[in-house]
Design a binder for these strands. Sequence first.
DNA 1: CCTCAATAAGTAAATTAGATTTATTTAATA
DNA 2: TATTAAATAAATCTAATTTACTTATTGAGG
Lengths: 420, 420
Amino acid sequence: MGRIRFRSVKSVMDNAKNQDPPREAAAHGDAVRGSNQSGMRAHNERLVLTLVRQMGPLPKAEIARMTGLSAQTVSVIMRALEADGLLEKGAPIRGKVGQPSVPMGLVAQGAYFLGLKIGRRSLEMILVDFLGRVQGRAQTSHRFPEPDAVVRFAEKAMTQLLGKLPVQHRKRLAGLGIAMPYRLWEWADALKVDPAQMAAWQDRDVAVEIAQRLEVPVYLQNDASAACGAELVFGDQDKPRNFLYFFVGFFVGGGLVLDNALYTGRTGNAAALGSAPVPSGDGQMRQLVDLASLATLEKALLNEGGNSDQIWGDSQEWTVPAHLLEHWLDGAAQGLAHVIAGSVCLIEFDCVVIDGWMPDHLREALVARTVAQLKRSALPGIDVPDIRVGTIGSDARALGAASLPLSNRFLVDRNALWKG
Amino acid sequence: MGRIRFRSVKSVMDNAKNQDPPREAAAHGDAVRGSNQSGMRAHNERLVLTLVRQMGPLPKAEIARMTGLSAQTVSVIMRALEADGLLEKGAPIRGKVGQPSVPMGLVAQGAYFLGLKIGRRSLEMILVDFLGRVQGRAQTSHRFPEPDAVVRFAEKAMTQLLGKLPVQHRKRLAGLGIAMPYRLWEWADALKVDPAQMAAWQDRDVAVEIAQRLEVPVYLQNDASAACGAELVFGDQDKPRNFLYFFVGFFVGGGLVLDNALYTGRTGNAAALGSAPVPSGDGQMRQLVDLASLATLEKALLNEGGNSDQIWGDSQEWTVPAHLLEHWLDGAAQGLAHVIAGSVCLIEFDCVVIDGWMPDHLREALVARTVAQLKRSALPGIDVPDIRVGTIGSDARALGAASLPLSNRFLVDRNALWKG
DNA sequence: CCTCAATAAGTAAATTAGATTTATTTAATA
DNA sequence: TATTAAATAAATCTAATTTACTTATTGAGG
């Protein structure tokens, strides 16, 4: 319906099925769908865009070889995408026998996306281009998140961010994504807020409310899975096809990439690893969130009479006593190692990515300790996966939010091929 | 190449891409493939067969509604499948307004499949029809599995089982599946066999060797995942789209169904849950296989001077002292509960299925205790999934082996759509 | 240095496959 | 007899493949 089209060309741009609210899309519990020609074309267009995004600019012939599609088909598809303003020719590459190849790469101005992060302490909206580069940013902080305030902020921030964009680019806004903790209302205690004040979240659907104020599709995802999406879509290249992701913030959560696509499962809450059981030394079971979240670090800091505001203000400039950090790092690494060891038995990841809201050196220390802990507690039959530091950092959740409309409209996913 | 065709019709039957050795198919690590028309047709045919298998006989119009395909397309596809001898018309259903609907169901003789189970104590081959009904069975027991003996047995059993089949049905053999423990050679100690005698498994590929003696494709899968496949393909209807599966045999292993398809991951060894870490009371980490496998029960039995042969002979008639069973059940349930609680955070299953080589009442007791244990150790944020007893039972691995060629040629899977 | 064979990229036109649309037939109920 | 629903034939449409060609380059031979 009110969906923007950049060009009136039958193409991936027209794949208008994705404007359903994200909850429905995530559920995909309907009957299995058949596939038809238009689904096929849309899929092949997404495939081309996905490959170019992953590998950088590629000539048509190379795409044809990689996809197994005929050269002619790829030629038609890529010229259409070029006409759509999503791909552009690069400088011809000479030096090899035969006609020079013309690599085609993504056009930065091809599409724009808004990402809204709803955090425990702040709201943030960013505007990114087709390459995932941040073009604008708006922020506000709060003591705890409220639906009305979120909608008001979103409306103001959208206007402000889009206002900065050259007029001809504004209509290339392709969607807005929201990254928000799952079941926000259950965390009132942890946020030291009256549960009644958080109860509003149970009945409100900010995604729908924001969608009413915008002409483009709106997607909602839990914050850690969204951050995982940022790593998948915007992260360093040569990402493996399957990986497990952790984002350590006020709480800790996970994300899961299977076959190059974010896996969000039946209810959209897959990889809710904060709840994963972790044995603590005393034989009692605890949960990953008790060990590896910044809420735990904050508590320790407050117990010693410290001030926790500095943690939430800037992710790079922390002055936390070393012994507290040490203790927190050990616990967090132990928890992460246990969850990784269990998860890798279920799904064989090529690697695990750990990111979070914290100074770079701390992220690296956390990864190093997790690796060490995994080696120490090695069990037969479990291959320790490659563990890496996230390449996005503190912005992962907002960027991940922005990646949702991008993935849904321009990248291959398991559902893109089927009939609407 | 040497692939049997039941009819020279362009259809799912001709989808000859699947004859690669299963390891390659499982790896699917190649570049992402594009999709073309023949892939589309093959997919839609598989979709129809999958729906009819899941739901029972369905009229064309109903399939059209469920798949979203046009009535005409479904009509063409289903008539082709009928001509292929895979579907047949049932009695017209009258009593509703309009022309009576003619439900179409699977033809039992539409295809046959061989399933070879390589066990620690025995070899078994079964022949099943398109409905998964066992049409023939051959067995032999051994002290430990040897490649040469396996190939010899397979050759003899194939001849014998196919010999029983009416001649015109023999050419409808669609493939052979093998269910075999992963990394068999690592279990020499547990089987109390000289590691040198098991080393041969490292260099031999019985799937390839058997394939050379057979005109149809051969697939290999670890035994627990194969058993999971049996539950998916042949198990009771109304199976959820996503479930976790355990098979408790000499060892314990898992299987994983995502979006109605067996998920075997990068190396084909997904859901290797026997290796999953489980905390034991004393603060030490153990693995599920130490708690929930029959090897553990056997050890306890032998420790008390009992005879374990009765366990392996018949899965229904056990005479194991009650206190040993009690102790084993408790440990196994504890282990399963921990692994389930961890796994459900990663992937939100609709349900968990537990099956195994054991008397029916014991399987039910194991499920009941696992449920109780999960409730006892409930942690916030973890929804306890529905836990069910497997509907296949002791035959699950052999039936699962037979389900592999069936799934690969006749049912939807994530890869069926792409170009070969 | 020039020429030309070889090679590879890229595309237009014709062909093919398979889904959809439209119109029609059939067979039941109300 | 009107209405409804299933089923399908014929025509149409879409998108991929095949075939045949052009273009632009390198590298070998003169």
